Simulated scan of single mutants.
Amino acid sequence: MATVAGRVGGRLSNERRFFAGMAVAMIVATFVGFAPSYYLSSVFAGPRLSMLVHVHGAVFTLWMLLYALQTGLVSAGRTDVHRVIGPVAVAVAVAMVPLGIATAIITKQVTAAAHLPPQGPPLIFPLGAILTFAILTAWAVAMRKRAAWHKRLMLLGTLALLTTPLARVTRMTHLPLTPALGGIILTDLILLVLVAYDLRTTGRLHAATKWGGAVFLLTQAIRIVLNMMPAWQAFAKSLTG
């Protein structure tokens, strides 16, 4: 019995370290992607930012910090504090959805009004990212009493947000991909890390990885297809002017 308990305890400890490490990695990726245009914009002589962009950046940064804090609390065994902070994280996640949609549309409108070349990926990609975040995070909240499901769906929901900063990394590193496609591929590589972790530790995919990952990939495919459709392009142009 002691041996079995030790194995279970060791697996839980490794799992907690894995998810805490993934949270830190995603914070680093977010910082690197947004450093020239937001976090270190004064150093890189970035463009002047509107109040909306500042609010958007602050709230999204808060989410990333809360996500890292929550995974860290679980890793430290402080699930009691994790549960107390949970409603705050949910409120931030709810605020992020309309804020993300508004920022994506208004930023494109400002660019078009100033007759500047299009900045960033086409509109469908940031909109798709925030909607994927909303779906997976809401699913994670609904599964909060099933820890293995909850932590995997939270990871995938937060990973959806990395599409934009990783698109910027694609541009900064001159990868032979469009920024939008590069952001998608790089997030898929991170998804593969979760897949590899499941296979290495249990020999099979956890159901949350399987079904949450399927939603993650499906929304990416929908974005790519919609972006090629004239009807969507006309609709997006009507939104952004």
Rank of each mutant, 00 (worst) to 15 (best):
T137C: 00
V141E: 08
V225S: 07
Q220P: 05
L159V: 00
F133E: 07
A25W: 12
L217I: 09
P87F: 01
Q70G: 08
P118N: 13
M64S: 07
L166K: 01
H115F: 15
M154F: 04
V110L: 15
L205V: 04
K145H: 05
P36M: 01
L217A: 13
L73Q: 04
I130F: 08
A91I: 03
R48Y: 11
V28T: 01
P121A: 03
I101F: 10
A236R: 12
A25R: 06
A102I: 14
A35G: 05
K210P: 06
Q119H: 10
L205D: 05
A148V: 03
F125A: 08
V4P: 05
A214K: 03
P176H: 02
W149N: 00
P117S: 02
M64N: 13
G120D: 14
Y39L: 03
R152E: 00
R204A: 09
A89T: 10
I101H: 09
V110M: 10
P121I: 10
A112E: 06
V110W: 14
H174C: 05
N227A: 06
T187W: 10
R17Q: 11
L155W: 09
T71F: 09
L69E: 13
T209G: 01
T240Q: 03
L186N: 12
A68N: 03
H54N: 13
L205P: 05
I124M: 12
W139M: 00
L162W: 03
Q233S: 13
S41I: 00
H174I: 07
V55L: 01
L161V: 04
L166W: 02
G157V: 02
L161D: 00
L239Y: 11
L239W: 10
F125H: 15
I184E: 04
D188Q: 15
P47Y: 02
A25S: 13
F18V: 02
A167S: 12
R17N: 14
L194C: 07
I185F: 09
L239F: 14
I124Q: 13
R17P: 05
T79M: 12
L127W: 07
M96P: 12
K151A: 05
R83W: 13
G9R: 06
F60M: 11
A234Q: 08
H115Y: 11
A214G: 03
L218E: 00
L155T: 11
A102L: 12
V4T: 02
R152N: 03
L136P: 00
I85Y: 08
T107W: 14
L175T: 08
R168Y: 09
V59W: 08
L166M: 10
A231N: 15
A113H: 01
A93P: 10
T132P: 00
G212E: 00
V215S: 01
W211L: 04
A134W: 02
G182L: 04
R144Y: 13
P122G: 04
L69N: 05
K108E: 06
G46A: 06
H206E: 00
A129N: 11
A95I: 12
H115G: 13
V59R: 07
G203M: 15
K237G: 15
F31L: 01
V4L: 07
V110H: 15
V88W: 06
V74A: 05
A89Y: 10
I184S: 10
L189N: 07
R17A: 07
L192M: 11
A95Q: 15
T3L: 15
G77T: 12
V225N: 02
T3D: 15
A208F: 04
G6T: 14
A89S: 04
V53Q: 11
